[in-house]
Amino acid sequence: MDERPPQSVRVWDLPVRVFHWLLVVLMTTSVVTGLVGGNAMVWHMRSGYAILALVLFRIVWGLVGSTTARFASFLYSPGRVFAFAKDLFLHRPAHYPGHNPLGGWMVLVLLLAVLFQVGSGLFANDDISTEGPLYRYISKNLSDKLTGWHKLNIKILFGLVALHVVAVIYHWLGRGENLVQAMFTGIRAWPSGAPVIALRFSSLWLALGLFVAAAIAVWLLVSQPVSQPI
C-alpha cells in the first residue's frame, strides 16, 4: 500500500457531470409524474423528451468526447473485466481514472435501458388520455405491448440504479474512493504511486453544439400534429 499522500486528478469533463446529474433529476421527475398521473402526464412526456436528448448527446459524446467519456476508453475486454473483478474480490488496489472495467459495461447497460425506456414511451398509450407522440404510426396492439415493456423496463431500471448506487457505496466504504464527489467536481484523489494516464478533454463548445443538435432532433421527432377536438 502506498503511504504517500494522494494527488488530485481531473477525470470527468463538465458535459459528463452535467449529463449525470440532469439524468438523476429527470429520471426522478419521470418516475414521480408517471406514478401521479392525471395532468402530471404532460410533464412525464416532457421529461422523457429531455432524457432522450440527453442520452442521444451522451452516445455521440461517447464517440467524440473526452477520453473518460468515450466508450472505446471504458469498454474493456472480458479478460480485463474478470481481472478487475478478481482485484475487487481479493481487495487488491486497482486504479482507473475513469470508469473501471465493471463500471464501464454498467454505463452501457444503463444507457441502453434508459434509451429503451424513453423509446418505448414514445409509442406507449395509457388507455386514458396520454399517447406517446409516435403512437399514431403503430397499431394499438403493438403500442399496448410496448406500454407493457415500458412498465416492465422501469422495474429493471430500478434494479440497475440500485446496483449502481450499491457499487458506489462499496467503493466509498470498502475501498475509500469517493466517486460521488468526483462526479460533482470532476476531480478524484489519485494515489501518487499509481501511474498517471494522459487524459484528453474535448471542447465544451463541441458538447454544447452536439446537445443542441440532439435537442432539435428530439423536438422534430416529437412535434406531431394533434387531432382537432370535437
Partner: peptide, 23 residues
C-alpha cells in the same frame, strides 16, 4: 375545470392500475 380533469385522470389510472391485466 382543468384541475378537475386532472383528478378524473388520476381516478382512471388508479382503477386501471388495480383492475386491468398487466400488458
Amino acid at each position: 375545470m382543468k384541475a378537475a380533469a386532472g383528478d378524473v385522470g388520476k381516478a382512471c389510472k388508479a382503477c386501471h392500475d388495480d383492475f386491468q391485466v398487466k400488458k
